[in-house]
Structures are given as C-alpha cells and as structure tokens.
Design a protein around this nucleic acid. Structure first.
Lengths: 333, 333
DNA sequence: CTGAAAGCGCTTACAG
DNA sequence: CTGAAAGCGCTTACAG
C-alpha cells in the first residue's frame, strides 16, 4: 500500500542507503544518481514515514505544547504564533492540556517518556511546575511562555511587565489623570508585582505618588473587578482613572462605572492590560497595554527549535516589549 | 539511557514477546508472570516508545486537526472539546493550520503521507476541501466540524442552523418585535441559508413575513455590519430588531445603533449567533443563538475515534442543538 | 502459557 | 561514490 524507501531503491536501481542519502542530502552522492533517485521519489510520491525516521534517528521532529486551557482570551494568539513557527520549521505540534487533575498529568508525562516529542513549550504551568522541573532535569528541553511568574530555572519568554505598568502610568498622567485606582491581579504572580511596581514608580516620578488605599487586589475576572469597583465606590473612594491588570478586569470596571452612573473617560479613564480581542469591541472601546502574545509564541517556539536543531541551550529568557493601545476609554476619541 | 522493552524482559527474566503481551493485555499470560512483569515495568518506570509502537503496529494513535486559524473567537472552545476527548482516549493531537498558501498545504499533505496521524478533524476547510476529498478517497478517515457549508461527502458535525434561525425569530416575536432586519453572512455558506430559511419561515408562520428589503448580506465582520446598519438607517429603513448571523456582526450592529442614537433594546432589539466569549461582555450584553462549539468538537472527536478504534465508518453526520441565550440586547434586563 | 524470529521503514557506521 | 548489514524499539505470527 504505502510506498517505502525499499520501493524507491528497487525502482531506481540503487540501495536504500543511497536513497536515504539523497533524502537527507547527507554524504556525497553522484549528481546523476541523485537526479535519478529524485525523479523516482517524485514519480512515486514517496514520503518517508515519520514514525520510522523518528525511531531510527531517535527524535520525532515534533514539539509538544502544554497549556492550562485553550479557551483563555489570549491563548489563540499565542497558539497561532507557535503553530506558524513550528510548521515553518517542518516540525509537528502536539497539543496537551492537562487541566483535569492527576490522571491527565499522568497521561502527559507518559507521552514525554514515550518520546512523542523532542521539546516542550509550556504556558503558565502554575500547577505543573514541579513536574516540568523534573522533566527538564531529565533532559527534556523546555521553554516557558509565562505571563505570570518568574521561573529562573527555565528558559522563558515574557512581556515587559514593569515597562508596561510604567507606560500605563505615563499615558494616564499625560491625559491629565492624577488619582488612579489600581486593580491588581493576584499578588503572588510576578507579573502582577512588576506591573504594579512599574506603575507606582512612574506615578511617583511624575509627582503623583499612589494612594495605598487605591491599590486593591482582584483576581483577573470580570465579575470580581466589577464588584470590587462597586464596593469601593460605595465606600466613597474617589479616583479619576482605573488601571486594571488585565482586560477582563478592566471590562468589569467599565460595567461598574456605568452602573454607578459615571462616564468613561469623562469622569474616570480606564486602561487594561493584554489587548484581548474583546478590548476593541467594548463600549467605550478599551485602552490597554498590549502584550504581543503572538510574537511571544513565535519567540518561544524559535528558542526551542534553535535548541533542538542547533544543540546549544536556548537563551535564558526573552522579554518582549509591551505598548499602549489608546482607545476611547482614556481618550474619548 | 531510555528503558526499553528489552531491559524489562531481561530483568523480569522473560521474553520481549511476553512483556509486550502484558503491556497490551493481548494473548494469555500466566497470572503470576504478569504480576511480576507489571512490577518490573513499574519499578523501572518503563513506557513504550510511541514511535516504535507506531512503526510496528502501523498506526500512530494520533489524531490530526486542521484549522484555518486558531484565533477565531469560537475556535478555542472547539479545540478544547477536541483536545479533552482525544486525550481522554489516550491519543495525541497534532495541530495544523495551513493558512499560508500552497507551501503550507504541501507541508500538511506530506505529514499525511508520512503517516503522522491516523485520522483528521478539519474545521471549515473552505480552501482545502478538494485536497481533503483526495486524502479521504485515499483512505484517510476525516470528520468535518463545519459551521458553514454542506459537504455530504464527509462525515461532519454541525449545529442546528435552521432551528437556530427559527428560535431567533420566536424569541424576537415573543418579545414583541415585528419588523426585523436580517444581517446575513455570505450567502454562499450553507449555514447562512439555513439560518435565514429558519428565521424567515418562523416569521411567516408567526404572521409577520419578512420584508425582502430588510434582508441584507454582510460578511461576518464587525466593521461591515456596522457600516451596513448605518447605511440602512441613512436610507430611512425602519426596523425594530436585528438578527445578525454571527456575534461579531451583532456587535457591529450594536455600535451602529448607538451611533445613530437608538436605544437597545428599547428602540431596536439585537440578537446574534454563536455565543462567543465577547457576547456577555458587551453593553448591553448580547442575546444570541448559542452554537455548542465545545460539544461540537467533542462529538467530532468521538466520531473519528470510534472509527479509528472500532473500525466501522463514522455516522455520516451529527447535528447539535442550538439554544437562545437571552441577555440585555433583547430583554433589557 | 511462552519464546525465537521476522518484520515495521528508516538511518548510519563500516567497507570497499 | 555506493552497498550490505546492523540497529532503532516495538508487535505478531509461528512453534512448541
């Protein structure tokens, strides 16, 4: 049924070794025999079995990708960046989401032991970090795409969170805001502390140090942000801007302000973080600090592939620049 | 380095064949030797090489998935449904997006020929349909997840578009609307014609046949829908509801109505189709006909896996029910 | 119930 | 420059 290297060899009148050489342009092959073998390969439509090649070579030319959930708002962009890069390099991409407890973690580690892929890209592996560390120590190349923490033990790519926080502050100050409310994400995340630090420093440097009472921890969800802002308003807190640590929370703030009868950006400006697809669809559309999720996916994939192909260990980390995307929620325009 | 079946056999004092038998619970094995082999396997942490197993068995226990783009609003849900189901069955999921012209299509078909996966799940393969048909004729099991067309040559799963359209009409009629504008998607898509038919029939049955001048083709984008509604309003068209054939278009309609100073749902009710994540984040939140994208992914994966595991060809099609998700854009509540 | 051997489709020293 | 042979790590008749 399947055309094998033996078929090609027989029809071309050469050995399998020679066919293999022209396939991999490895070793010297006479020009004319190479041309002839090529012709037979094309005529037969021969494609080497990836399983057999992998077994013989001891590698699968496949990259694994482990994500907590594929439905998060920005995950599609990351995944697209990864898949484009991996395909371009002629590798396959095996997708895993071990979000269902020990059983699925077990299945995943089995795939690793089975040699199903040569290297792994992992997104925000909060629950699986120790497992990944173990795999990494056992020789599995790993690159993290990490929005949240600091994991110096792995090569990783992140966005410039500190600078992003500072940029948010500069944008708000430049548009005349003086007393911002900061709606942070969970403070155990490194990215959250970075965003907060960057923002706080830039505010202080600008002459308007943050009011500690206006720095409030939230949990990255729309609902909690909405309730938190409503509560603060009820307590009589006064602020002329909101810096939310992600877009979902910013959208929650938008809803809360609307409920309270406040105008955005007239009374209160709102800036988020991420630039998820929904950010341009809200009313008013949401100003936000953009994380280049697709580029982060591409970069992580390139780091891993360079390691797999070149041999040298990947650069320890890459930090990609964030940028403010100004929309109606701060500019009104 | 790697623990192989030979290591297990040697240490357990049996042949590789016996180890293979206990691994696959195939053939009779003495209870005590089985227990002993199991113990050695566990102690050594042995996991069979997926490449070697695939080569020996002639199958990869891997499913391929081909999507046009992984960043579409509802793609994450489909993908999550697929990946959960495929993982549960112990299969791997290889992801492809051949959205970059002939070169990437070529790379994809090579992966097929290389036997990298046993069966394929394809989402809306508008541009690649003829390629898929060829692969299918050559024996590759294929199941389509198809929001758009009708492709009777393949097993496929779709949502109940006709019924969904009818449900949208019933919902609007029940809330007192009489002269709806229909913003269709591209009329070349089967799903669009189905949604329109269902809607038109239900309106007629309800005693309020559609005004043909209020059935307007759009292209599923927010921008085109927005401009179209603004244009129609400018032409003096009068309607008390909008049925948009997807949520992005509905969100565009929301923006247009706001620009025109019309209130939603006070002056005009709006209902979309899909239930993308952004639908609950707009203001007013968007009533929509929900397509169960995750369940569609699960169902397609199950159909394919049943075929791969059981041998029988998959059921020709599955049609999953849609449902109206009532939110503020029609109820005001 | 169990083992020796062939085979899956490649690659890679080793000779020549 | 080219081929014969061994080997990658499994599975599967075939014997016994």
């Amino acid at each position: 049924m399947r055309v094998t290297i033996a078929d090609v060899a027989r029809i071309a009148g050469v050995s399998k070794a020679t066919v293999s050489r022209v396939l991999n342009t490895r070793g010297e092959v006479d020009r004319s025999t190479r041309a002839h073998v090529r012709e037979v390969i094309d005529r037969l439509g021969y494609v080497p079995s990836s399983g057999a090649v992998g077994l013989a070579r001891g590698s699968s030319r496949t990259v694994g990708m482990l994500v907590p959930s594929v439905t998060w708002p920005w995950m599609g962009e990351v995944l697209q960046g990864v898949v484009d890069t991996v395909e371009e390099a002629g590798f396959g991409l095996l997708l895993f989401t071990c979000n269902r407890g020990a059983e699925s973690v077990g299945r995943f580690t089995r795939q690793v032991s089975a040699g199903a892929f040569d290297g792994l890209l992992a997104v925000e592996p909060e629950d699986t970090l120790s497992m990944l560390a173990a795999l990494h120590r056992n020789g599995l190349p790993v690159v993290l795409i990490d929005d949240r923490g600091r994991h110096p033990e792995f090569p990783h790519v992140t966005a410039a969170n500190h600078e992003g926080g500072a940029a948010a502050a500069h944008h708000l100050l430049a548009t005349g805001r003086r007393t911002p409310l900061v709606l942070t994400g969970p403070l155990r995340f490194g990215c959250v502390r970075d965003r907060l630090d960057g923002f706080a420093n830039a505010c202080a440097d600008g002459g308007y140090p943050l009011d500690p009472a206006l720095v409030v921890e939230s949990d990255f969800t729309e609902a909690d942000a909405r309730e938190t802002v409503i509560r603060l308003l009820g307590e009589g807190r006064v602020f002329d801007a909101v810096f939310a640590h992600n877009d979902l929370a910013a959208i929650g703030a938008l809803a809360a302000l609307r409920t309270a009868g406040l105008r955005v950006p007239g009374d209160v400006a709102v800036i988020g973080f991420d630039d998820i697809p929904a950010a341009r669809l809200t009313h008013p559309s949401l100003t936000t600090v953009r994380q280049p999720m697709r580029e982060m996916g591409e970069t992580a994939a390139r780091m891993l592939l360079a390691h797999l192909q070149g041999g040298e260990p990947p650069a320890p980390s890459a930090v990609l620049p964030t940028s403010v995307v100004a929309r109606q929620s701060t500019t009104g325009a």
